[in-house]
């Protein structure tokens, strides 16, 4: 059965983190997911929550309303976007007055937010909607002999109150997916630590230090690579790895992948089609296929 979702790309993935988008568009259709592109989306508002919370609610409601207009559930691969959209739904769902105010403003663009659509993220789409069994069926080249650390991203796991795609204290869905792909995973104490991503906006050095600390820990625990599912986190761990390493006086060379890139590799998709040339971390260290 084919399932349709509006792909909500968000700012970072669509303007910079191309590898995530390329690998998503390449792999999900193999699992009978149809991704629909909708014109007119804007920022989810989460990076502006510090400036104006109402703006965040408005922007998220606007994007959800666009998907609703197209009668589609929303697939938000970015953890930050996914939280903004979910929080918007949570707040407006319990606050009719706020919903009314937002809708009053949305009318200018001929949009209405009802809160009828679902919001999914990469991890729950793969784990809950498609299912481990189905994923395993597609594996052609299992990821053998690699031990991977997972990073879910704070916004994907917390706050539980709002409803997140994975458990807030003991997320294991990525582990289940990776294990279906043939890779080995392991728990490590820093698993839930932050990448520092949002702090890039105003305290870049600290953001890098945060990422550096986590990368260093993952490296010291003996993992062969790190897997993530958020363009902000990935930017910190992959594109900015060298700089992050400098803040903790470490020369880091840890391969960092998007989950969807590994999914594609295990499915036998060619490397070139998964945007792997965009990973700045030494992903070639790992021989797959």
């Amino acid at each position: 059965m084919k399932r349709k979702f509006a792909l909500y790309p968000g700012c970072i993935m669509s303007t910079e983190q191309y590898a995530y988008e390329i690998s998503i568009r390449e792999t999900l259709p193999l699992l009978d997911i149809e991704l629909v592109d909708i014109d007119g989306f804007s920022c989810c508002g989460e990076p502006l929550k510090s400036v104006n919370q109402l703006m965040m609610l408005y922007l998220s409601a606007r994007n959800l309303a666009l998907a609703e207009k197209n009668k589609l559930d929303m697939f938000a691969p970015c953890a930050i976007c996914h939280l903004a959209l979910s929080e918007c739904r949570y707040v407006l769902g319990s606050n009719p007055e706020m919903k009314g105010r937002i809708n009053g403003m949305l009318a200018a663009e001929d949009l209405t937010y009802n809160g009828t659509g679902e919001i999914v993220h990469t991890v729950d789409l793969l784990h809950d909607r498609i299912g481990i069994e189905e994923i395993a069926k597609h594996v052609k080249k299992p990821l053998k002999d690699i031990k991977l650390a997972t990073h879910y991203g704070c916004h994907a796991i917390r706050p539980k109150e709002i409803g997140r795609p994975v458990d807030s204290e003991h997320p294991m869905k990525m582990e289940a997916i990776l294990s279906a792909l043939g890779a080995e995973t392991a728990e490590y104490p820093e698993k839930l630590d932050c990448c520092g991503g949002l702090l890039q906006i105003n305290l870049d050095e600290s953001a890098l230090a945060k990422a550096g600390q986590k990368l260093k820990a993952v490296h010291e625990h003996g993992f062969d690579g790190l897997v993530d599912v958020c363009p902000w986190c990935h930017k910190m761990f992959d594109a900015r790895q060298t700089k992050a390493g400098e803040t903790v006086a470490a020369k880091l060379d840890l391969p960092v992948f998007y989950l969807t890139q590994l999914l594609g590799l295990a499915f036998g998709v060619k490397k070139e089609k998964l945007g792997l040339e965009f990973n700045l971390s030494p992903v070639d260290k790992i021989q797959i296929g």
């Binding site: 910079e16 920022c43 502006l48 890039q200 965009f278």
Partner: peptide, 25 residues
């Protein structure tokens, strides 16, 4: 920090930044 830049960008084009030219491996 860059909060004003981001705000300006969202106001003018709807996204926090425009398409970036990125360096590959």
């Amino acid at each position: 920090g860059k909060y004003s830049t981001i705000l300006q960008s969202v106001l003018s084009m709807g996204l926090i930044q425009d398409i970036q030219e990125v360096t590959m491996r």
